[in-house]
């Protein structure tokens, strides 16, 4: 599988740079801190919860907020990881290596995308180790945990697709990073204006576009195909745009 070869190289290149290791370390450290403070809060709340006979447990109080914070932090981190995918290769005139080989543009773009996404999956795996450590002492709502993990994986798949596309647009990695962050933030907060738009259709459209809405549904354990479809739509759109943009490199005027 030629795409896996490309993905493997991409992943390896990421791990050869200090940036990826730093990102992993910082993210893990901050989330561990949040995790511990959340756990502390749960320990304090536990007697009251028992008295109220409430339907919420450790998964809702400790784990769901962790993934919420992780999602927000990843919005800032993913642009740093995707920025070099194409732009750096273009800047160092290394795209010729791929263009001269018997590869199609689709294979090149998807290969690189898969490589970066594999890194994101590893990152998710590391984050998930923290909630799983609670299994040593208590029972978890594994269904809810799975929904949260799926939610964050889909979110990152969408983030990465947007990041890869932004990277095809420029030769400067920093420009790619800043513009990716801009797009992600806009998609995150786009529903804030939702209530203020008078038109109901427009407001609904803004609500639909918001990544936050679709992510929150999953992290509450609500598995809805329309949310999955939303992510697939974003991934496909930006992959197709990337392929077209890279193809246009050969047509430059």
């Amino acid at each position: 599988m030629i795409m896996l070869t490309l993905a493997q190289r991409e992943l390896r290149a990421l791990f050869l740079s200090p940036l990826a290791w730093t990102v992993l370390a910082v993210l893990q450290f901050i989330l561990a801190y949040l995790f511990l403070s959340q756990l502390q809060e749960y320990v304090q709340l536990q007697p009251q919860l028992r008295m109220m006979n409430a339907a919420v447990g450790v998964t809702d109080i400790v784990i769901v907020p962790i993934y919420g914070s992780a999602a927000f932090m990843l919005m800032m981190v993913v642009p740093l990881l995707t920025m070099r995918v194409i732009s750096d290769e273009r800047r160092n005139q290394r795209l010729t290596l791929l263009f001269s080989a018997p590869l199609s543009m689709t294979e090149i773009v998807l290969g690189k995308y898969l490589g970066v996404f594999a890194f994101m999956a590893i990152m998710t795996g590391l984050i998930t180790l923290m909630p799983l450590s609670l299994l040593l002492g208590t029972h978890l709502d594994l269904g809810l945990l799975a929904a949260s993990v799926l939610g964050i994986l889909l979110l990152m798949a969408a983030f990465t697709a947007i990041g890869v596309y932004m990277s095809t647009l420029t030769v400067q990695p920093t420009v790619a990073a800043v513009s990716t962050f801009g797009v992600l933030l806009l998609l995150w907060i786009i529903n804030w204006a939702g209530g203020k738009v008078g038109d109901e259709n427009a407001s609904g459209a803004l609500q639909y576009l918001s990544m936050l809405n679709h992510f929150e549904a999953l992290s509450k354990g609500v598995f809805n195909t329309s949310d999955i479809f939303y992510y697939l739509l974003i991934i496909t759109t930006f992959m197709v745009l990337s392929i077209r943009r890279l193809d246009a490199d050969r047509l430059q005027h």
Binding site: R94, P102, L103
Partner: peptide, 20 residues
Amino acid sequence: PKLAKAEIGYLPEQPPLYRD
């Protein structure tokens, strides 16, 4: 393009190397 490119090896002006 795939069949054609399989028959070509190309060294551009600046060699496309992965320095790492």
